Each structure stands twice: as C-alpha cells, then as structure tokens.
Computed example of a mutant assay.
Amino acid sequence: MAPTYKAPPAYAITSVDNALRIAAMLQLEGALTVSEVSSRLGVATSTAHRLLQMLVYRDFAVQDPDRSYRAGPVLELAAHSQSAAAKLRAAALPYLHRLVGILQESANLTVRTGSTVRFVASVESAQALRVGNREGMVFPAHRTSGGLVLLADLSPDDFTALYAPNRFAEHPDDRPDVDALVAALARARRAGFAVNNGQSEKGVIAVGVPVRDGGGTAVAALSVSMPSVRYEKESLPSYVGHLRAVAAELERELR
C-alpha cells in the first residue's frame, strides 16, 4: 500500500513540530549532539539547545556526560509499550480500582527504566485528603516504594553497574548513598515489600510490592500511597496483605 500524504495542519506550531522531530530522531537513530540537531532542523544552535532541554525536562531525552543527548525514559518505555507497559496498564487498572475500594487510598502501578520509575497507571482515592494521580510521572527509583522493590530484584552486578559513579558524572548529587541503598534493598528483599516515608514527596507514605512474571522476575510494582497524617504503622500488615493478594491475581492474569 502506498503511503498516504499528510498535509500539514492549517496552524502548524514550528517549535512543537521541531521537538517531535527531535524525539523521533533520538528514538530511531540514537544519540545526537546539539550541533547535529541544529543542522538537521535548520535552526540556530541556541534554539536546538532549548528544545533539547525541554525534552530532558519532560523525560523524552537525557543528556550524557559527553553532552550528547539520547532517548529518555518516556521514549524507552514507548519503544516496547505495546508489549509491556501498555498491556500492564490495561491489565492492572481493575486491580488498582479494587485496591482503592478496599484500602480507601490511592493505588499505583510502576515500571522501572534504569535508575528511574514511571507511574504507568494510577487511581485516586475518593477521600478529600488524598495523594493525587501520578500517572506519567517519573521519579528516581530509590525514592519510591515500587522502585525499591524493583531495584531489590536486581543482581549485584546489575545494581553496581546501574549506580556506578560515571553514570552520574553530569549530576553527581543525583547519585544516592549506595551503602544506605544496599541496606534498604536488603530489607525490602527479606520482607517482600518496601515503605517510602516522604522520600518522593513530603507528607506522603507509600507501601509497594513486586508484580512478577512467570519466571519470577519483578516486571512492575503495585503500591498504595496516602497522606502521612492518616498512616498508622500497625496497619502496615493489612496494607501489605491486600497488596500481595491483588498482585498475585494480577500475576495470574498476566500469565
């Protein structure tokens, strides 16, 4: 079938078009420098730099230590969204609604890309004071309950490579205290769940458990999040029990 010609929209926005073209180039071609983007788009270097920085801000791109840019978490997930993230989201939504109905707190599904996690599905609690919808948001994995249980599933070699100092050369302050993180992951591995007390957002507590595929690999995490003023430590076993039960049902459906 011959390709269909698409006329440009009547009110084309050049900056949006250029940003989308850059995103496509990064995903399809790999890393690019500012000067290469400038040349390809026929724009000034300063314009190319501003566009790339906006893509970095929205997680469509990341900047490497050599100052080149490559596809970011959003595009990395999109590359296999139909086979992984999109299917996970569709399968998980009914279970998230069930968790909210049982626990009366907001529920989330997260997946990991490198040292970050993305919330691919989120269902809000109906309570007036609640944690809002986080769908589409990206956080450092070590700062979320779901991220901790996913990191805990890594082999020692994979973990070491992921948090090697050279990966944070451009932004060394983003590298966590590795010794403290190793200890936290050991606790999460033993317990089978993780708790995030204000690490991703002040005043918010979350509890997360892994969702595993047929081979036992953690492919996602289920979590519930709530305002810290409503959290009671003695209720933790209840949160974990319900999360594990719902995660087990989701795992059976995914298989």
Rank of each mutant, 00 (worst) to 15 (best):
L26A: 06
T33A: 03
T144E: 01
V204E: 11
A183N: 06
G214H: 03
V37L: 04
S39V: 03
D173Y: 11
E105Q: 15
T45P: 01
L96H: 12
S46D: 10
Y57E: 10
L250Q: 07
L93M: 07
V195R: 04
D64P: 02
V240M: 11
R67G: 05
N18G: 04
D153V: 07
A194C: 01
N108V: 15
Y239L: 15
G241W: 11
D177L: 12
Q127G: 13
V111H: 08
S228A: 15
A169K: 04
V138A: 04
N18L: 07
T47N: 03
R187M: 06
G192K: 02
D17S: 06
T14R: 00
V229W: 10
D158M: 05
S46M: 05
A152E: 07
A152S: 14
A86E: 14
P237C: 11
P8L: 09
V74S: 03
M226R: 10
R244P: 08
V149D: 09
V43S: 03
G203Y: 14
L185A: 01
R130T: 12
L28T: 11
R98E: 15
R50A: 10
A48C: 08
G215Q: 08
A152C: 13
L75S: 07
G30M: 03
S235Y: 12
P94E: 10
T33Q: 00
S125E: 10
L148A: 03
K6T: 09
F139E: 13
A78I: 12
A84L: 14
P8G: 04
R89S: 15
D213G: 09
G192T: 07
T113V: 15
R58D: 08
S83R: 05
P8W: 02
Q53V: 11
E29N: 02
G30H: 02
R21W: 04
R130Y: 05
A245D: 08
H97L: 13
P176G: 02
S115I: 07
M137H: 13
Y11V: 10
R40P: 02
A169D: 08
G208K: 00
Y11Q: 07
L185Q: 00
T45W: 00
G132L: 10
A2G: 06
L151N: 03
S35N: 05
A78M: 13
R230Y: 15
P165R: 00
L150N: 01
S235P: 06
V120Q: 06
G136R: 03
F60T: 01
E135Y: 04
E234H: 11
V62S: 00
V149M: 10
A206L: 02
G192F: 11
A188M: 12
A180E: 04
A218I: 13
Q104P: 13
R230P: 15
Q27V: 06
A220Y: 14
L222M: 05
M137N: 06
V207R: 00
V100D: 05
L109K: 08
E249C: 09
R67L: 14
Q27R: 04
G114K: 07
R98I: 15
L96C: 14
P94D: 12
A188I: 13
